[in-house]
């Protein structure tokens, strides 16, 4: 129901005769229309997300052969496993550090691009977007080739300057670094674009006003840019965090979780347990593990976003 009609006191006189009943009828009809408009969305989500999701929850309460209901047992079993806690640790490390780096790099790049004269911007922007446009499953293969023990082009270059070859994927520390690096490489341009869009939406007058008040560059960033970008930062970070937590291809292709399970994230571990070792319910439990935590985080973030956009409007 549009508040617009109600808050336009001058209008009704010229248009239809104002009657309470008509308005009510209109509003009822409107919600029917609104419901119909959202129906495809609702059906899509109920049919292809909510229903399979509930089914997956059900799966996670079954035993290995899927013949018996065992309740929480899969989860309590996971919590008692050393390997699983490694996976939790690595997933958090992977997602959080990758998202922070992506956000930071995206922010820097957006700023730098924004400062460029419009003519040069397009060229740079194009080059900086390349990682985001190559399908990640395949660009990860290319990275993998760069990390290959025998053929690593990185190591070739390092040897050229007299540095020992690096076991990119062979040692826990390096392997963790490598999977995060690839994720950052792939995801930063997305942040850059989102931030660039946000920056462009900050009215120039605000900066001019700040300049007149004698604000330094940092102060402008702190008091003008940040507040104006907060929503898009929250949304982008939230979106990216969720997607990064669910990441599968990068780890799967680069290390398959090795060495010694140190790079396993939820998705790859779930795959190994569920599909490769034939314990689908346990795999489903692994995948479900992060859901409650992320959901809480997401709900709070989205509430903040909604509140701020209401304030702004």
């Amino acid at each position: 129901m549009s508040q617009g009609t109600l808050s336009a006191p001058a209008a009704p006189a010229a248009a239809a005769p104002p009657r309470g009943g008509a308005l009510k009828r209109l509003s009822r009809r409107n919600s029917t229309v609104a419901f119909l408009l959202t129906l495809p969305l609702i059906l899509l989500i109920l049919g292809l997300v909510v229903y399979p999701f509930l089914y997956a929850i059900y799966l996670s309460t079954l035993n290995r052969r899927m013949t018996r209901f065992i309740g929480w047992e899969n989860f309590t079993f996971l919590l008692s496993r050393e390997t699983f806690w490694n996976v939790v640790f690595q997933s958090v490390l992977f997602a959080v550090s990758a998202v922070l780096l992506k956000a930071l790099i995206g922010f820097i790049l957006a700023h730098v691009l924004h400062a460029l004269p419009a003519k040069g911007q397009r060229k740079w922007r194009g080059m900086l977007l390349v990682p985001w446009v190559i399908p990640p499953a395949i660009s990860t293969l290319a990275w993998w080739w760069l990390f290959d023990p025998s053929y690593s082009a990185f190591n070739w270059a390092l040897m050229g300057i007299g540095v020992d070859p690096v076991p990119w994927l062979g040692q826990a520390g390096w392997a963790r670094f490598s999977v995060i690096l690839v994720n950052v490489w792939y995801g930063s341009p997305f942040f850059m674009i989102m931030y660039l869009a946000a920056l462009k939406s900050v009215p120039d007058q605000l900066y001019e006003a700040a300049a007149i008040d004698g604000a330094s560059g940092w102060q402008k960033l702190r008091y003008v840019t940040f507040p104006m970008m907060r929503n898009i930062i929250s949304i982008t970070v939230l979106f990216s965090l969720i997607v990064t937590f669910a990441n599968f291809d990068i780890v799967r292709i680069l290390t398959n979780g090795g060495p010694q399970d140190t790079t396993h994230v939820f998705a790859t571990y779930a795959f190994q347990v569920g599909i490769q070792s034939g314990d689908i319910p346990l795999g489903a439990s692994v995948s479900l593990f992060m859901f409650p935590l992320l959901a809480v985080f997401a709900i709070f973030t989205l509430r903040g976003v909604n509140r701020r956009s209401k304030e702004m409007a």
Binding site: D148, P149, S150, Y151, P167, W168, L169, G170, Q171, A175, T255, N256, G258, P259, Q260
Partner: peptide, 21 residues
């Protein structure tokens, strides 16, 4: 053995041989 054999996959050993290493 090479230091990074712990992450080798099914193709790494092939490459080690083919590359002559």
């Amino acid at each position: 053995l090479p230091g990074d054999v712990f992450s080798w996959d099914d193709a790494s050993n092939n490459r080690a041989l083919i590359s002559g290493k």
